[in-house]
């Protein structure tokens, strides 16, 4: 296999712009489009030369990257985050049964780190249960300090 010859920096920058413009489009179409446009540029530069003027001409013929991206198929929308019963119950318990806060806090963090269930609900549980835990720790420290004094 022949290595891709070095491109004029203008063309390399154009290809990088194109790849960025194609973010959010079908991944296979994105990869194929960038590869095919790269080949097109190789062929075109072989005809017109490799100086800046040739590079500008090739880029001009390929057209604005936004126009190319507008022709590409948008990537399929990601499936909405699933709401699992566990996450709802954890959030509800954090709100209602605050003595369980340390347990709920750890449980929600474990689920967050595992990447399962609904992240928004897990963060709600973390915030709701962290509050009584932090307040509890503060009161305990104050209590100990008062006794020591």
């Amino acid at each position: 296999m022949t290595a891709t010859p070095e491109f004029p920096p203008l063309v390399e920058a154009y290809l990088a712009d194109l790849d960025r413009a194609l973010a959010g489009t079908d991944p296979r179409e994105r990869a194929e489009t960038v590869a095919a446009v790269r080949e097109h540029a190789v062929e075109s530069l072989a005809r017109h030369g490799r100086d800046d003027e040739a590079a500008r001409r090739v880029i001009g013929e390929l057209g604005p990257v936004e126009h190319i991206a507008a022709e590409a198929t948008p990537a399929p929308a990601a499936a909405p985050a699933k709401v699992e019963v566990t996450d709802v119950v954890l959030a509800a318990l954090a709100l209602l049964v605050w003595p369980l806060a340390p347990v709920l806090l750890v449980w929600a963090i474990v689920r967050l780190r595992a990447g399962v269930g609904n992240r928004a609900l897990q963060w709600t549980t973390v915030v709701l249960s962290a509050l009584p835990v932090v307040v509890g720790i503060v009161f305990t420290v104050l209590h100990v300090l008062n006794r020591a004094a």
Binding site: E32, I68, E71
Partner: peptide, 16 residues
């Protein structure tokens, strides 16, 4: 074609 580059997303689709 709007410009030559717009040919390529289309080619990718007809290939798929």
């Amino acid at each position: 074609l709007t410009s030559e580059g717009t040919l390529y997303p289309l080619l990718s689709r007809v290939r798929q």
